[in-house]
Every structure is written in C-alpha cells, then in structure tokens.
Nucleic acid binder design. Structure first.
Length: 305
DNA sequence: ATCCACTTGTCGCCTATGAA
DNA sequence: TTCATAGGCGACAAGTGGAT
C-alpha cells in the first residue's frame, strides 16, 4: 500500500495553527505551529485517527506476516498479533510515533523547500523491531489477564535507530527528482541536546544509509501497481547512486512546551540560521510543533480518549 | 533584588547487543 | 548462560540570565 490519505487544509490549519516567524538564510527555513486542541473534534478528529491508522498499516501487516490464514480473521484481538499496536505502547514511544507522523503530515500538506508535492509512500515503523517484539509480550500478558501498566519504565523501548521518514517528489513517468530526509523528535519538554542530535544525525552524506533499503523492502511486500512503481523508482535511484536527485533535509520537532523568555521568542529552534550541528550544504527545513498538552494529544490519537 | 525560565551536566533505570 | 558495554530516556540539581 502507498499512503494516500490527506486532510482538507481548513480544519487542519485550525488544529495546527501556523505562527509566522522571521526569515533568514534562504537555504534554511523554520516553520512553527501551535496546537489548538478545541479544533481536534468530530468530524475532523476521525480524519486524524484514520490518517494515523494508515501510517501504521504497514507495521501491522508486518506483525501479521506469516499468521495469515483463510480460516482465521484478525477481528478477534486475542489472535491478532497486531492487536494493541500502537495503542498499548509506552507513552514515550507513542510520542515518538506522533513526531514521525507529524513530519510526514507537515511536508505532505504544507510543503517544504518550495515544493508542495512531496509524498511519503510508507512509514518505517515496522523497523522498530525491539518494540514489535515487545508487543508480543504485551499481548501475551493481556491475554493471560496479567495486570500491566503500559507507562511503567520497564515497558519503555529505545527509539528506532536510523532516519525517521523519507519524502519524495516523483513525476508522472515515475522518476524521482527530489528526496527529503526527515529526522523527527517529539519530547515533553524542550531539550537542546535532542535538537542538536537530530541535526547531527541528518549530517550523513550518504543517502543510502538513510532508510532507503528499508523503504524498498517495504514496497517489495506490496504487489499493487503503485507500490511497484515506487519500488522501481527507488531502485533506479539506488542504482544511479543518487546523483540525479536533489536532496533536502528536515528536522521535525514536536514539543509539549512553548518558550516564554525572552518574550519575543516564539520557537525553540532558531528561525534565522541552521543549527551548528548540521554540517551538510543541502537546503534545511525546520518544522516545529508546540503542544500545551502533549499527553492529551497522545491520549486522543493513540488511546481513544 | 527577586523570581522564574532556561541551559547544561549528571545520575539512575532499563534494554539491546554481542562477547566470553 | 552470564557478563560488560552502549545507548535512550526521564529526573534532578546547580548555575545563568531575562523579566519585573
């Protein structure tokens, strides 16, 4: 499957409200949104849930691989290996997933680097293998009626290593012209070290190291024409050594706080110049989302509250 | 002068990983 | 199987500096 869902811009813009920032270096831009929770209501909220559901579809497929059987449907959560994904994972993990999905959401709807036709064919959640293994233990305990607290420290797993998402521009002939490497973070409180790490991680010159192989692997599992078109385009890119595409880099930063000092400060990331930990020369895009109640967003989107 | 937001460093907790 | 190492993350505390 190729991710397809999109929002109508009006309700989306009412939920994540753009805050204008001063503009600096043309090779670098920062955009900022603040959440207005009151706008996350029906019917728009259902759209949001469906959007996230689609983002997790591939990881669910992965969890179910080898369990498919004509006689058994996954309607019964007790036998579905993808049950409770990602609803019963640790809050910190869900925050991370939120951040990754927000990165895709932002570039798909609001553009980046002067282009408005980016596509994220699939998310890479299935490669968060430590967490997928952990889910089996969770489902097992649920099935046996063992009490368990999803937010207890032992339920926390480290985040997926590697880049978080890849967006592309592909023309009608199936040729990819641009690649956007998205590194996503999502924290309860601001942390400059984490922002620096995200920029360091982006500073990897080799595109081949950044989730390409994983994405091609995913697309290989789907035999729809569209998935194969994407796969062929990515393979071509891989063979050509990525010399034919324009690269963009992006840090997508979700945070449960809003700066208060100095009074004129709107964003945690610098709106004027790119982070000193970013060492490459590609156009760099910063995306920042501020939530006054991050726990509430996670509850709404992942926990049905 | 005081308060409070913010930064930075450190610590402990926990898991994954791989070597012995 | 056991052990050491590395790494992600939250919590805490001390210090800096803006705001009033």
């Amino acid at each position: 499957m190729i991710r397809k869902k999109r929002f109508q811009l009006t309700p989306l813009n009412n939920w994540l409200v753009s805050v204008p920032l001063p503009v600096g270096d043309p090779q670098y831009s920062l955009r900022l949104w603040r959440e207005d929770r009151s706008a996350l209501a029906a019917p728009f909220k259902d759209e949001v849930l469906a959007y996230f559901d689609e983002a997790f579809e591939d990881a669910r497929k992965c969890l179910r691989e080898g369990f498919e059987d004509d006689l058994c449907s996954f309607a019964d959560p007790a036998v579905d290996p993808a049950a409770n994904f990602p609803g019963l994972l640790h809050r910190v993990t869900q925050q991370g997933y939120l951040g990754e999905a927000l990165g895709a959401l932002a570039v798909e709807h609001w553009g980046a680097g002067g282009h408005n036709d980016w596509q994220v064919p699939a998310m890479l959640f299935r490669f968060h293998s430590a967490e997928l293994q952990h889910l089996a233990s969770i489902n097992d305990r649920i099935a046996r009626g063992v009490p368990f607290n999803q937010d207890a420290t032992p339920e926390m797993r480290p985040g997926r290593t590697g880049d978080d998402a890849l967006a592309f521009r592909m023309d009608d002939e199936g040729v990819i012209s641009d690649v956007l490497v998205i590194e996503a973070k999502c924290l309860g409180a601001n942390n400059n070290g984490t922002i620096a790490e995200a920029h360091e991680k982006l500073s990897t010159p080799l595109l081949k190291n950044s989730g390409f192989r994983e994405l091609i692997n995913i697309l290989d599992k789907y035999d729809t024409g569209e998935a194969q078109k994407w796969r062929a385009a990515l393979l071509e890119l891989w063979r050509s050594g990525h010399m034919t595409v324009s690269r963009y880099d992006c840090v997508s930063y979700g945070v449960g706080a809003q700066p208060k000092r100095p009074k004129t400060r709107e964003s945690w990331m610098d709106p004027l110049k790119s982070h000193s930990s970013y060492t490459l020369k590609y156009p760099l895009v910063g995306l920042e989302y501020q939530f006054l109640d991050l726990a509430g967003v996670v509850d709404s989107i992942f926990r049905g509250k």
